[in-house]
């Protein structure tokens, strides 16, 4: 089977689902914060990988981690915000992780974290800022998607990445390219 044909097969089942399900095309009403993260991941299978330790994190000092792939597009920031946040883990619910590629056109966001406002940005390319306490919502700017958030779990002192909400810049499928 050619690559294109394989994709056809995958697409058929997935799109059939999207067309028939009234709320499946991107909109699911959820109320709880953990639920928001969970709902996105019901149909995807992401690797579960240890990416850090709670005890090693300092407030407002982001660390570069790699998830879900090994390529440069999968570079993410793991950061302890110092106040609880959407999708946050750890004792204070303030540990979050996000893609470091701007979801507008892939601008590099490493080095742009602003502790005062808990935002990443402005992106050096077109100035988009993202609110890390609110699932990576755009504060101001041009990105057509929130900044993809890495789903986290904590076991003891260990932080595990278990999935990604949103399509990472450059990818057509977060799970298609892993190496």
């Amino acid at each position: 089977m050619t690559q294109e044909a394989q994709n056809d097969k995958f697409c058929l089942s997935r799109r059939a689902f999207l067309l028939s399900g009234g709320t499946a095309a991107g909109i699911v009403a959820v109320t709880g914060i953990p639920g928001l993260v969970d709902a996105a991941l019901q149909t995807a299978t992401y690797p579960r990988r240890k990416i850090g330790q709670v005890s090693k994190l300092k407030v407002d000092v982001p660390l570069v981690v790699q998830y879900p792939g090994k390529d440069p597009n999968s570079m993410a920031y793991l950061v302890k915000l110092g106040k609880s946040a959407g999708g946050g883990v750890g004792p204070k619910g303030d540990i979050v992780a996000f893609s470091t590629l701007c979801s507008h056109m892939g601008g590099p966001l490493i080095g742009t974290y602003k502790g005062k406002h808990k935002v990443l940005g402005p992106c050096p390319f077109h100035l988009t800022t993202f609110d890390l306490s609110r699932h990576g919502l755009v504060v101001a700017g041009q990105a057509t998607e929130s900044l993809p958030q890495v789903r986290l779990e904590v076991k003891g002192d260990d932080i595990y990445a278990t999935g990604v909400m949103g399509l990472i810049y450059g990818y057509h499928d977060n799970l298609a390219i892993q190496g």
């Binding site: 294109e4 697409c11 892939g106 990105a143 450059g170």
Partner: peptide, 27 residues
């Protein structure tokens, strides 16, 4: 559906699409 190699999609680009290329499709 097209594929991620330049020859497999109408954008004629390898995915992951390059940074600032104007060839990435956001959802």
């Amino acid at each position: 559906e097209g594929g991620p190699k330049a020859g497999q999609n109408a954008l004629k680009v390898d995915f992951p699409a390059p940074v600032n290329s104007g060839k990435w499709i956001s959802p």
